[in-house]
């Protein structure tokens, strides 16, 4: 009799067991520096992440319900808008720049190509309120969420209260974005000695990269996070009918020395984030390397590393460019691009 009783408990226990949900936890890759984002202020939790993910892919954030964050930040392209030189916003309007990847944001100090936003938690306000992106007031977004059948309950689970505030809304979005970590490329596994080797060409490319590129694309994030003029020709263009010139970092600092400077982007997943540069004007990695070899245009704010001994550009041979590209492709992180936890198809 006693025996049967035990069996009963076991069966009950087994029935209660639901499919295990993955527990979300922020982990610092061993080859990365310490994150810049203050995680103690907003610890990533499973419920906070789930809420942030739902918000990220929800077009309720836009004025007419047509645009979500995920519209311009697509996972399979490392959360960029694949193939678009300038990203597309509401009413098919163009934005000023190419959508940067949402990737390893915990290590970013400032956001946007011009660094205009200095806290990840403040970031989402800009695309929501920009007239050519989501064109919605943040107050209205929060009101829509408050009336939504699901969100108040999700805020309750994430933050212990169903009261939806700006702070909690932004923190949830940050939690999702913080988990978009790309640190499992072939290069990472090689550098962490995880039994992966690079080919002779890839290794040669890495050595060339260190000499030719790493003064800006530094460290394990492949950027020193600085703002530099990389010799792209500044061009006037019509943006939604308005004559425009993108002066880059100068828009933020109003300092003429910052004119046409843009943030040095990370090169992780660079193979699949084309087109390139702040305006998406270069379509292939070959074109990018060609630019640095022969396309750099002089300008008073041109970065000095691109004009050494009076010579414009970076000294490169065709063979060297090929090897550097071979190396850059080892930064593609298939696990990140297909990570089911980050996938829109897997709510």
């Amino acid at each position: 009799m006693k025996y049967i009783f035990y069996v009963g408990i076991l069966i009950l226990g087994a029935c209660k067991q639901q499919p295990q949900e993955p527990q979300i936890q922020f982990q610092n890759p061993s080859n990365f520096p310490e994150p810049h984002y203050n995680l103690s202020r907003n610890p990533v939790t499973t419920e906070g992440f789930k809420l942030g993910k739902m918000l990220f892919f929800d077009s309720i954030l836009s004025r007419d319900g047509t645009i979500s964050c995920g519209s311009c930040h697509i996972q399979s392209s490392a959360f960029t808008q694949h193939g678009h030189d300038l990203s597309h916003g509401i009413d098919d309007q163009l934005t000023l720049r190419n959508a940067p990847p949402i990737m390893n944001l915990a290590w970013q100090k400032e956001f946007f190509w011009d660094g205009g936003v200095f806290d990840l938690d403040l970031f989402a306000l800009a695309p929501i309120e920009a007239h050519n992106e989501m064109d919605e007031s943040i107050a209205n977004v929060l009101n829509k969420l408050r009336k939504h059948p699901k969100y108040p309950q999700m805020f309750e689970r994430a933050f212990g209260t169903s009261e939806i505030t700006l702070d909690r809304f932004l923190k949830a979005l940050s939690q999702f974005q913080l988990m978009a970590i790309s640190a499992n490329s072939k290069y990472d596994k090689y550098i962490r000695n995880e039994g992966v080797t690079l080919t002779t060409d890839e290794l040669a490319g890495l050595e060339l990269f260190k000499v030719k590129c790493s003064s800006c694309h530094q460290g394990e994030l492949f950027t020193d996070l600085s703002y530099r003029n990389n010799g792209m020709i500044p061009q006037r263009f019509k943006l939604n009918g308005i004559d425009t010139i993108d002066t880059g970092r100068e828009r933020i600092t109003l300092n003429p020395n910052d004119q046409f400077k843009f943030k040095v982007p990370s090169l992780r997943n660079v193979e699949i984030t084309r087109p390139y540069m702040h305006n998406g004007s270069l379509r292939t990695l070959e074109q990018v390397l060609d630019h640095y070899q022969t396309g750099v245009k002089d300008h008073p704010t041109l970065d000095p590393v691109l004009k050494q001994n009076g010579k414009l550009g970076i000294d490169l041979t065709n063979d060297e460019k090929k090897k550097i590209i071979e190396f850059l492709k080892t930064l593609t992180d298939e696990e990140f691009l297909k990570n089911p936890i980050l996938s829109e198809e897997n709510p």
């Binding site: 202020r41 200095f118 403040l122």
Partner: peptide, 26 residues
């Protein structure tokens, strides 16, 4: 430059301070 959680009340950009904030240039 304080965290959003310390910008409540009259500084809440989703409330009283709506329209009094540059989101593209914090």
């Amino acid at each position: 430059t304080k965290p959003v959680g310390e910008r409540t009340g009259n500084l809440d950009i989703s409330g009283t301070a709506q329209g009094m904030y540059w989101s593209w240039n914090s």
